[in-house]
């Protein structure tokens, strides 16, 4: 469920490999890049320092139920009188854990599949790419929904199912990079120098094939955050942790009386996803040899 991530992958596959040095720094100097990077940094900081930053424990009853934003509770309270600001700060943690873990899984699987497919070629490449295509088509949201529905809510299985199914775009981009890099001069030089195939793969090709794929990772992770939030909204979030989706699902019942319950958690999700999309788009453009 990632339209622009798919389009971005297409641009990367078609782009020239090994972009000019310094392109990442140039992206961070553009207004969009600066805003995106600052928001992502803020998200990571808030998530890491959640227990220090949050005024109260997110599960602690701390005031009157359904109180609007005020000096005591900057973002108001929920139906049990729990502080919404604390809930949102701790929710940042949940979304970062899910996003980070899925990103790690996707990076490892995607890179491995792309590298093997691109370097070895032949029937293995064929099989792997057909499998990648099939997986890419599968509706991930529904798969995650079915897994959570039958195995019960939990971050571990959510991370596993999203990580195991979100790597196809990355694999395709790494493979395209590998194919383009395979016959570059520096690789030929390594071959002439007598380097082993494994050494060439890991030391010469891998470091150059990975950066464009990592830019794509931002766009993939943005979609993962939206899926996690949507599942939470449907009441399929992990009950042991606070998450933005779960907070918003409670808002549904009190829509008539407590607008803050829907606006603030939704805004948190929007800002993080926006930041990741902004940054990912600009990096993809830069690394696809566009600017």
């Amino acid at each position: 469920m990632s339209d622009t991530a798919e389009a971005a992958a297409g641009r990367l596959e078609a782009g020239t490999p090994a972009p000019a040095p310094g392109s990442v720094r140039r992206v961070l100097r553009t207004p969009g890049g600066a805003v995106g990077a600052s928001l992502v940094l803020l998200w990571v900081l808030v998530a890491t320092l959640a227990p220090v930053l949050a005024p109260t424990d997110p599960f602690a009853v701390d005031g009157p139920p359904l109180a609007g934003p005020s000096g005591d509770h900057l973002l108001g309270t929920d139906s049990l009188g729990r502080d919404l600001l604390s809930g949102i700060i701790h929710g940042a943690r949940t979304s970062l854990v899910v996003a980070g873990s899925v990103a790690a899984l996707v990076a490892v699987i995607g890179t491995a599949v792309g590298l093997v497919s691109g370097l070895l070629g032949g029937w293995l490449d064929d099989v792997l790419m057909r499998f990648t295509e099939a997986l890419q088509v599968l509706p991930r949201f529904f798969l995650a929904l079915v897994v959570i529905a039958f195995f019960g809510p939990g971050l571990d299985r959510l991370i596993l199912v999203l990580g195991a199914t979100s790597w196809p775009l990355l694999a395709r981009v790494v493979r395209a990079e590998v194919l383009a890099l395979r016959h570059r001069e520096f690789v030929d030089a390594a071959v002439v120098g007598g380097a082993s195939r494994l050494r060439i793969a890991l030391r010469e090709i891998l470091p150059n094939a990975v950066p464009p794929a990592l830019a794509l990772l931002g766009l993939v992770v943005a979609q993962v955050i939206l899926i996690e939030a949507s599942l939470g909204f449907l009441g399929l979030g992990d009950p042991n942790v606070t998450s933005w989706g779960t907070l918003a699902s409670e808002a549904q019942r009190f829509l008539r009386v407590a607008w803050w319950l829907t606006v603030f958690p939704g805004l948190a999700i929007l800002l993080v996803v926006l930041a990741l999309n902004l940054l990912g788009d600009l990096l993809v453009d830069a690394l696809a040899g566009r600017r």
Binding site: T4, A248, Q252, L255, T262, I269, L270, V273
Partner: peptide
């Protein structure tokens, strides 16, 4: 477009209800 694309569907739905229905 960038902002709306980043908004979770339930937020848009709830905002639309708050604004245009309620």
């Amino acid at each position: 477009a960038l902002t709306v694309y980043a908004a979770p569907v339930f937020l848009i739905g709830q905002l639309v209800i708050l604004g245009l229905a309620l």
